[in-house]
């Protein structure tokens, strides 16, 4: 068996294979749903209705998509430059830590000043976390995959320490949680009485900004060059290490914003369950979007719909909600395979 590059890719191919990939994921999950005794058609029906069927469900999906857009952008930006940032989870939490440190009363500023201050500090928090592995990579040649993964555990324990120590809310009845951010730090809801908040709009704007940086700026060009072939980029006079450092700041900063928007838009305070794996799901979002910033928005909404829909299905049909994680993982694996098949042809001999 070998692979042969295709000379040209027809549109049918470019659309067909990804659709097939998602269909494959759906079939795998249908089989798993059947194991529980529930009907897969009914299950998917419940899922679709629970994710997009009502206005409430749709807003809920967009709410869940908001942090995924940020972490998806973080992964996409880094992966484009072949900086393997698997630590968006840690960067998200550090962004949230910065938000509650400054936003719970330390800076009594009006919102037009406080919002940008908090955003920038959340970005700095996330960026600092990623700059450690990036420095170790460029200076000592330590593989960033392992260090970013290990940092996820270190940072989560650090947050746990803060929440049981200096950041603990004295009125929190002993729970490890921070104080609520002040009213001027909170993002308004987009629709009265719903959970959907301004963070979603900011996430979409962030995607647009990343797209413009990627397409129109010298940095975007350099990042892609480094990702494509670091050695060639070096010979072309691109300062590879400096580009990687900038990539890390951008990627870590975007993940930090996910923490900021969850705290100021949705939760109000910081707890240890702020993120149910948004950092890891961001990797899936980025890959489903083929690392394209605008695609990230669509992919994040898709992944969020799967999670929200599965929750609804689990409540009504008794199918464990972990089916969503299975579906997302199978989608990731089948999608990367499908994308490869649009570029190469399989030859059996």
């Amino acid at each position: 068996m070998r692979l042969e590059p295709r000379e040209h890719q027809s549109l049918a191919l470019l659309v067909g294979y990804p659709v097939l990939a998602l269909a494959f994921a759906a079939v795998v999950c249908a089989l798993l749903v059947m194991l529980t005794g529930a009907s897969p058609f009914q299950g998917f029906g419940l899922m679709l209705k629970g994710a997009l069927g009502t206005q409430f469900a749709f807003f809920e999906t967009l709410t869940r998509a908001t942090p995924l857009i940020f972490t998806g952008l973080a992964a996409a930006v880094a992966f484009r430059a072949k900086l393997w940032n698997i630590g968006a989870e840690a960067q998200l939490y550090m962004g949230a830590v910065m938000t509650v440190v400054l936003g719970t009363g330390l800076l009594p500023l009006p919102w037009p000043i406080l919002w940008p201050v908090l955003m920038v500090s959340a970005m700095i928090g996330g960026a600092l976390v990623l700059s450690v592995p990036t420095f170790l990579k460029t200076r000592f040649g330590v593989d960033e995959v392992v260090t970013t993964l290990l940092l996820n555990f270190i940072v989560l324990l650090f947050v746990s320490m803060l929440l049981e120590g200096v950041l603990k809310d004295p009125m929190g009845l002993g729970w490890p949680q921070s104080k609520k951010v002040i009213a001027d730090a909170q993002l308004p809801k987009l629709v009265q009485g719903k959970r959907l908040h301004l963070g979603f709009v900011i996430a979409v704007l962030a995607a647009l900004a990343v797209w413009i940086v990627d397409r129109k700026s010298a940095l975007g060009y350099e990042m892609r060059a480094v990702g494509h072939n670091a050695k060639a980029a070096h010979f072309a006079g691109i300062p590879v290490n400096r580009v990687l450092a900038k990539t890390a700041l951008l990627s870590g900063g975007l993940a930090g914003l996910a923490g900021w928007s969850e705290v100021t838009g949705l939760k109000g305070n910081l707890t240890l369950d702020l993120s149910p794996g948004f950092g890891y799901s961001g990797i899936v979002v980025a890959m489903l979007a083929l690392l394209h910033p605008i695609g990230v928005v669509a992919a994040a909404i898709f992944v969020a719909a799967v999670f929200v829909g599965a929750d609804a299905m689990s409540r009504t049909a008794g199918v464990p909600s972990y089916i969503a994680h299975v579906m997302v993982a199978v989608s990731l694996l089948s999608m990367v395979t499908a994308i490869m098949l649009t570029r190469y042809r399989l030859r059996w001999r």
């Binding site: 393997w84 698997i86 995959v145 890891y280 990797i283 899936v284 890959m287 972990y322 994680h325 299975v326 997302v328 993982a329 199978v330 990731l332 694996l333 990367v336």
Partner: peptide, 14 residues
């Protein structure tokens, strides 16, 4: 990298 992370997500979820 991506496949490995995918396998981890899949195996854990299953």
């Amino acid at each position: 990298h991506v496949t490995g992370i995918g396998i981890t997500l899949l195996a854990t979820a299953l």
